[in-house]
Design a protein around this nucleic acid. Structure first.
Length: 566
RNA sequence: CGGGGUGUAGCUCAGUAUGGUUAGAGUACCUGGUUUGGGACCAGGGGGCCGAAGGUUCGAGUCCUUUCACCCCGACCA
């Protein structure tokens, strides 16, 4: 492509709302243009990058035997009613009616559509397994779109779905897909981590997220410093702690005025908060109603709300007001798990057999000491509801957990029969018995990957595309368009590279050296061949975007040299 | 959805408290000239329903009402 003819509107200034590097540079370098909140147009450079990523995905999907399809973007709301997700998905689903007053939604994900496509077409175990995917624009009416391509309302996603007759076959496919996803991210040149995760509103198990490591990531992930373990903070667990010697005490009720906080309580008894029981009261919203639920944890721990949701099966978790607690007869600061009959409660599994604990006596100004929680271990409801801390031990080895930020670019999980049952998608097994498909689902954010690459590969001058993602590999810069010898060499080299299949840009604009260099750095071509003042000595230079180094090359060897580098 | 902010040239922003020439700057764009290794310089030029609608006034970018959009913090987010 000739730069003089290309549509690449670069600017010196970024849109005022751009915060992330990817948003700033993709805007400034003329890749994307925002048209409305969370909606972006892709200009030629972005389109090329997207195609590259799609090609890599297609290649890797072909290797594992997945087939590409394309489902309609506008989907009938009736399918969403059938699965029951029309209410669960909420306002993120953009709904509208056609001229005949039929209700439709813009697809935010395509479980229903894919199950509908397969049901009654795949009818025998002999036809299984199959794995179908598409790369398609999705729409989620996010309450608050932000960060450019990172969290748009309209975005491109690769979504795949596999159908199986047996659990073991799903397990096999799931592993194969995990490997394929890792290969994709590796080829894209990304530093990433596969972590255990919560499966969210779609439901399912064996959930894993593929996280591109970047400080700007919206997710916090806990990773082990010794083994491969990594998990989203929403799902992270920790190894059993060596229970330190508890200060022994006989069971007793103690007057503890002015100690409604864990801090005060620990100070009062001169013990570590680890030996205290804290109560976190939350209001849980269920499909029909809502109610206050008490969560008991060690004083040293914090409630992990996603875990709390999973433990209770609620849809949403919100704060409670002091008034609501009062109405239930709960004494703030002195709520304890013993004889707790005022509200439903969940106790952190870490407390299951804890002894010598201090907890609220459900009476103002009184706490129990020397509490042995094992006495209620048979009757109370225990679940993992605490959030791991940095420095906690790894659940799989003797390493320590540390936190890092990640961008969720992929999410794979085992759906099981949730959707096939809801949509009555069944096949006949060897015994002629009808069974729902066992499904897996595999998502990867294509447009988000474009942003993720830049989040991980940029500097103060702009984008630094990796070899597999670069919109053009080589930029030939003719320093002074009035110098005939420079133009001649540039044109000849351009033609030769194009003929060799190299994606090449020829900067043939009548601009000054500095202007063109800044522009090339902003766009981020991996290599720029500078044909300039050294040509009188028979030399040109290769500028490496990543290192910003320029190396001189004899003009007669430049073709071979650049081909070597690619 | 709660709280806050901003809408003026393609982009970044002045001007609005106290209404009053033809609405400004930088950048980008066009023409001519000089320049040619790190976003040049000089001269000239084009570009605006001052987010929209209504109102107050002799007069509104500026005051009032309504509305829309966008952004930030939070809630939410397969």
């Amino acid at each position: 492509m000739r730069r003089s003819r290309a549509f690449i509107p670069t600017t010196k200034e970024a849109p005022s709302d751009a915060v992330l590097a990817s948003h700033i540079y993709l805007s400034r370098a003329g890749f994307i243009h925002q048209v409305a909140s969370g909606l972006y147009s892709y200009m030629p450079l972005a389109k090329r990058v997207i195609k590259k990523i799609e090609n890599i995905i297609n290649e890797e999907m072909a290797k594992v035997g997945a087939e590409e399809v394309e489902l309609s973007f506008v989907t009938p709301a009736s399918l969403w009613q059938e699965s029951g997700r029309i209410d669960k998905f909420g306002k993120e689903l953009l709904r509208f009616k056609d001229r005949k007053e039929n209700l439709f939604v813009l697809g935010p994900t395509h479980e229903e559509m894919m199950v509908d496509l397969v049901r009654n077409r795949i009818t025998s175990y002999k036809q299984l397994p199959i794995n179908l995917y598409q790369i398609k624009t999705k729409f989620r009416d996010e309450a608050r779109p932000r960060f450019g391509l990172m969290r748009g309302r309209e975005f491109i996603m690769k979504d795949g779905y596999s159908f199986h007759a047996y659990e073991e076959d799903l397990d096999r496919e799931f592993s194969a897909m995990e490997r394929a996803y890792k290969r994709i991210l590796t080829r894209l040149g990304l530093d990433f981590r596969v972590v255990e995760a919560d499966s969210g509103a779609i439901g399912g198990s064996g959930s894993k997220e593929l996280m591109v490591l970047a400080n700007s990531g919206e997710d916090t992930i806990a990773v082990c410093d010794k083994c491969e373990y990594g998990a989203n903070i929403e799902a992270a667990t920790r190894g059993a702690v060596e229970i330190p010697e508890a200060p022994e005490a006989l069971f007793n009720k103690f007057q503890t005025s002015e100690t409604s906080s864990i801090e005060d309580l620990a100070e009062f008894f001169k013990i570590d908060p680890y030996y205290t029981v804290k109560c976190v009261a939350k209001k849980l919203v269920f499909e029909e109603d809502s109610e206050v639920v008490l969560f008991f944890l060690r004083g040293s721990d914090n409630l992990q709300e996603v875990k709390a949701l999973n433990a209770t099966g609620a849809l949403e978790i919100t704060d409670v007001t002091a008034q609501e607690l009062e109405e239930l007869g709960l004494e703030t600061g002195y709520i304890g798990p013993l004889d707790q009959d005022r509200a439903k409660h969940v106790i952190d599994s870490d407390l299951k057999n804890a002894t010598n604990m201090v907890c609220g006596a459900n009476e103002k100004d009184y706490h129990f000491v020397g509490v042995d929680l094992s006495i209620i271990s048979e009757v109370a409801y225990f679940a993992d509801i605490s959030e791991v801390h940095e420095g906690d031990s790894c659940p799989h080895c003797d390493g320590k957990l540390s936190f890092t930020k990640g961008i969720e670019v992929g999410h794979i999980f085992k759906l099981g029969t949730t959707y096939s049952e809801a949509l009555k998608a069944e096949f006949l097994d060897e015994n002629g018995k009808a069974k729902p498909f066992i499904m897996g689902t595999y998502g990867m954010g294509v447009s988000r990957l474009v942003a993720a690459v830049i989040e991980q590969h940029h500097d103060d001058s702009g984008c630094i595309w990796t070899k597999e993602t670069a919109p053009y590999m080589v930029n030939i810069m003719i320093s002074n368009i009035k110098e005939v010898t420079q133009v001649e060499l540039g044109e000849a080299l351009y033609t030769r590279l194009i003929e060799s299949g190299v994606e090449t840009m020829l900067d043939d604009r009548k601009e000054r050296f500095g202007f063109k260099m800044k522009d090339a750095e902003l766009i981020g071509f991996p290599y720029t061949i500078i044909i300039g003042k050294e040509l009188v000595n028979g030399n040109v230079q290769i500028f490496d975007r990543k290192t910003k180094e320029k190396i001189s090359v004899d003009k007669n060897e430049i073709y071979e040299k650049i081909m070597e580098l690619l």
